[in-house]
Design a protein around this nucleic acid. Sequence first.
DNA 1: TTATTTTCTAGAATCGTTCTAAGCTATTGA
DNA 2: TCAATAGCTTAGAACGATTCTAGAAAATAA
Lengths: 142, 142
Amino acid sequence: MASDRPYSSIIERLKNAGLRPTRQRLALAKLLFEKGNRHLTAEHLHGEASAANVRISLATVYNALHQFTAAGLLREVVVEPGRSYFDTNVEEHHHFYREDTCGLEDIPGEHLQVGDLPAPPAGTSVTRVDVVIRVKSDQGST
Amino acid sequence: MASDRPYSSIIERLKNAGLRPTRQRLALAKLLFEKGNRHLTAEHLHGEASAANVRISLATVYNALHQFTAAGLLREVVVEPGRSYFDTNVEEHHHFYREDTCGLEDIPGEHLQVGDLPAPPAGTSVTRVDVVIRVKSDQGST
DNA sequence: TTATTTTCTAGAATCGTTCTAAGCTATTGA
DNA sequence: TCAATAGCTTAGAACGATTCTAGAAAATAA
């Protein structure tokens, strides 16, 4: 059985981020954070909400995703023009991107080290280093 | 004075790529490849063409950019949702991306090595590894 | 409760990009 | 040279993802 306060930690996370724990944000947070690491687009999450009988407008999904991202609860990943993915894993890590299926996967953090980082342009400092390993299915796939 | 055959090498490049050297494609290739390494969006290139008194439709700019990319003359770089950059440098290299000005810069190839590449998901093989170092201007900038 | 502020919503608007159908243009081969 | 033909360009419509708008609803504060 689940705890009798299944939302309490999510409510805390939202409050700490300065966001009111509204019905919509709770529902989205639940979908996002209670299933392990996920990589979702806004449309996709909106679809999941509908499937879970949570009526919510697409605009609200976009708002929530950006607010969660600003609060550090999500991370936005850009791998394709015209579509944003939101990653529930905010630890330092990188991605595989399957060009044929448009699927994103985390690369475990221990792997992949980026060395010999050059100095950033004068007057700037690094905010993040993104590595995307693009892959495609092998030819003779069944 | 310029050579008396200023287009000949560009014409060859287009022909080798199976593209007719039309007026529009020549003009775009000239803008793209005769100014060192560049990172341009379609809109930006269209603007440059207009500024150079080359009348060309935006659709043609998009077509040409994609054809050049398919031919290996350009490389597409995705760093921001909703906008594609095309890079005239097709050698293996990576990028700085200035989040505040939306500017893209090459990182010289000798720098930055990615080590300990994990094996790609079963049934797939790597097509490319993209590294983007995101930077922002320092606070007290004048 | 009531007042205040924030949030949500549907739908319109916007953005970059792609599509369409028609008219041009480069190339080919008589 | 001259059509014939295949490929290219075009303006404008269409598109998909995202953002905006203005008013209604809900959360918090007093």
